[in-house]
């Protein structure tokens, strides 16, 4: 990606230090590091309750080298609104530095579900901030419950795959498009498959005046039931199967950031994850559900292409 020199970035202090207590191999701290890596101005971070918040601020220690505030679960959008509003006044008065960027982090539970209203309000009011959803598709801090970001057929602890019900019965909500409907200047979706994409998108989001939103698919090895070392491979499959399209929406214009040359079937993405193993159990396969999932992916992809063309 143009303008980003990795060697230069190694000299920069990272806003999230080592010594945090996230699980070994968790993708969330990686997403945070990469996200904030190329942001040049000082950053103030607000975090929604979740694994990231809890594990980075185990009192009396904090892994945040930048100012950080956590209020509660459902209100990162409102919290950062207040901080940003205060900055507008206090920088006018010369009490605070003029150039400060505001970034909120929330998991999918805190963003798709309980925090959606607070986020929507902050977007509508046009605060100058970037909201990053680290989306592992469920409630991991409480032990892998389903959220409205959990994909259909996934085995979560509140949508368990049982002898009668084959995991979650509902499709995931398309939050990226819900956010896009707020008509904000910048919206993007990505995953950890290509670090430079995430680094560049967040840099762009932060540098765009007004609200911006980045939805990052981040595996939770415990919920997805994958080897933590394999998370980058799984992210790559999410992008290549078109399960998780990598794109951005600038001033309402959709642009694909990554178009897989040889898309892989959804099945390849599902098979490597234990949370779908019930679909592939010998003698009790549910290939109908796999086919349905593929049809959903195809339909969503076509819709996205139309938006990109339009």
């Amino acid at each position: 990606m143009a303008g980003i020199d990795l060697k230069e970035l190694t000299k920069k202090q990272n806003p999230l230090t080592e010594g945090h207590r996230m699980c070994p191999g968790c993708g969330a701290p990686t997403a945070v590091r990469q996200a904030l890596m190329a942001v040049e101005d000082p950053v103030v971070v607000v975090g929604a309750t979740g694994c990231l918040e809890v594990s980075t601020t185990v009192y009396p220690y904090s892994a945040w080298r930048v100012p950080f505030m956590h209020v509660a679960f459902e209100n990162a959008g409102a919290g950062i609104s207040g901080v940003e509003a205060a900055h507008r006044v206090l920088s006018r008065k010369g009490v605070a530095r003029e150039k400060i960027k505001f970034v909120a982090f929330g998991g999918d539970g805190g963003t798709y579900d309980i925090g959606l209203q607070s986020l929507s309000g902050a977007l509508e009011r046009g605060h100058d901030f970037t909201y990053i959803c680290y989306n592992n598709q469920g409630y991991m801090n409480t032990g892998a419950q389903r959220s409205s970001a959990t994909p259909i057929s996934a085995n979560a602890t509140t949508s368990p795959a049982g002898s009668v019900i084959p995991g979650k019965l509902q499709r995931a909500k398309n939050l990226t498009e819900i956010v896009t409907a707020h008509d904000i200047p910048y919206v993007a979706q990505t995953t950890l498959h290509d670090p430079m994409d995430l680094i560049a998108k967040v840099k762009r989001a932060v540098e765009t005046p007004g609200p911006a939103f980045v939805n990052v698919l981040v595996p939770c090895p415990l919920f997805w039931k994958i080897d933590s070392a394999d998370q980058m491979k799984v992210c790559k499959l999410a992008a290549e199967s078109r399960f998780w399209p990598v794109y951005e929406v600038t001033e309402g214009k959709h642009v694909l950031s990554y178009k897989p040359k040889n898309p892989v079937p959804l099945e390849d993405f599902l098979r490597v994850q234990g949370r779908y193993s019930h679909l592939f159990k010998k003698g009790r396969e549910r290939m109908d559900l796999v086919a349905q999932g593929q049809a959903d992916v195809d339909r969503e992809w076509e819709r996205l292409l139309k938006k990109c063309a339009g």
Binding site: G19, T57, P60
Partner: peptide, 24 residues
Amino acid sequence: KPKCWQDVPPATIAWGASALDVET
């Protein structure tokens, strides 16, 4: 680490980057 309540920093504050002391 604080040894008594009078030593506890105010307002739930933790000092930035103090996790560098934590040997994960």
